[in-house]
Amino acid sequence: MHELYMIVSGPMMWATCVVFSGGVIYQLGRLLRLLLRKERSLLSYMSLRYSLRSIAHWIIPFGTLNMRRNPLITLVSFSFHICLLIVPVFLTAHVVLWEEAWNISWSCLPGPVADGITLVVPAACIFFAWRRLRRPEVRFVSDPADFMFLVLVALPFLSGFYCCRHWPGYEVVMIVHIVSGQALLVSLPFTRLAHMILVWFTRSYMGSEFGAVRHARDY
C-alpha cells in the first residue's frame, strides 16, 4: 500500500499535472493558431464589454431565458458545477495535502457541509444520465462517451466520500479515488470536458457578435 500510494501520489500526480497543463496549453495554442491562421478577422469583432455581458448572464443562475424555462436543469447544473469546483479545492483532506507539500493553506469546508456537497456531484451525474436516456432530444445527440464522462466525473467524488467516512477497505478506495481524479484531469483538455476551457471563448465570441455587431441579446 505504501509503495502504491507513493506511486500514485508522486510520479503519477506529477504526470497528471504535466499532461493536464500541457493539454490546456495545447488546446489554447491550437485555438489561437487556428484563429490567427484562418479566422483572424474574427478578432476584430471581439468586444470586452459584450463578452463580459454574455458571460455574466450565463454564469448567473436564471440569468437567461433558457435557464428560466428549465428551472430544474438550471438548479442541477449550477449545483453540479459549483460543487465540482469547490469540493476538491476546499476539502480539509486536500488542503492538508497542499499544506504538507507546498506549505500553503487556506480555509476548509466544515466536514458535514463537505460531505453533503460531495454527494451533489454524483447525484447530478445520475440526473444527467437519466435525462440523457429519458429525453429523446438529448438521447438523440448522445453517444456512449457522454455516459462514460458522467461516470468519470462521479467516480472521484463517490470514492472520495467513501474515504472520508473511513469505511472498511477505504485504503484501496483511496487509490481508486486518486487515480480516477487523475483520469478526470488528464482527459479534461482532450475531450468535450474541454468546454471548461473553451466555453469562455465561445461565449465571448457569441456575446461580441450579438452585442457589438447585431445589437441584440444572446441570453
Binding site: 485555438l31 484563429l35 484562418k38 479566422e39 436543469i73 465561445t202
Partner: peptide, 27 residues
C-alpha cells in the same frame, strides 16, 4: 481550407445537452 477555430471550439465544447432543441420552431 474554410473552417478553423470556431468549428474546432464548437465541436470540442458541445456537451450534447440538447438544450438548444426548444429554440427551434421545426422541433
Amino acid at each position: 481550407a474554410e473552417t478553423g477555430a470556431r468549428l474546432m471550439a464548437y465541436f470540442s465544447a458541445c456537451t450534447h445537452c440538447g438544450l438548444c432543441s426548444e429554440a427551434c420552431h421545426f422541433y
